[in-house]
Design a protein around this nucleic acid. Structure first.
Lengths: 109, 109
DNA sequence: GGTTTGTTTAACGTTCTGGTTAATTAGCTT
DNA sequence: AAGCTAATTAACCAGAACGTTAAACAAACC
């Protein structure tokens, strides 16, 4: 994967485990063990995912005794959103959207 | 990369060449050769990128004589946007945002 | 039918990813 | 100091990603 900001961010989002970690962190900070718990993989694997997320600016890691609490970070998400949003006008006016809308109308009657 | 919808979409976006192709297609359909022109890579490489984008539902490809015109497709972009938007409330209320806002105010005076 | 133009497929090499196990670091507890 | 718990690092492996060149396919053109 290329190492420019957006590639790193989207690359980080391109994994279901990492997206699940973000979803979990949206409800509040958690330790590595807590984050790892739902997954059928070893701790080092999760640790690597966290490093990827951190590099992408999607999480940050603190330090509290021997725990390394992770929290969701706005920066990366915001950058991703800003990029995608540049295309919003495109799909909002697209035929697909119109088509879906029409189908919905017909289903309703 | 995992093969679930979102991973495929974000994976496709995690490459500057592919994002550049999407940016180009936002201004209208183009043939493979036209799309390849700005890049310092061979045609087969571009062809592969297009296949990735197609698989992600970010573009579609038609057929016109020996040309294979590509056009931007709303579907994939929309899905990406919907996912990211679930976190919008998060970063919009974040300290970072507030901080940036305050800095802006101070810069303005 | 042969050539030219546009594009894809095949085969291959290198680097990156995502996982493993084993060893290590860091900090608390006794 | 020894031992426990939390987490990371190191070394390794299989498979995927991204590029190459060479060959094949498709459709127009002479």
């Amino acid at each position: 994967m290329a190492d420019d900001r957006l590639s790193v961010i989207f690359g980080a989002l391109a994994d279901p485990t990492r997206r699940a970690i973000l979803a979990r962190l949206a409800q509040g900070s958690a330790s590595v063990n807590e984050l790892a718990e739902p997954f059928a993989m070893t701790l080092p694997a999760v640790s690597k995912h966290l490093k990827v997320l951190e590099r992408a600016g999607l999480i940050s890691r603190g330090r509290e005794a021997q725990w390394r609490p992770c929290k969701l970070e706005a920066e990366g998400l915001q950058e991703a959103s800003e990029w995608v949003d540049r295309y919003r006008q495109f799909w909002e006016s697209s035929y697909d959207k119109l088509d879906a809308h029409l189908k919905n109308l017909m289903k309703g009657t």
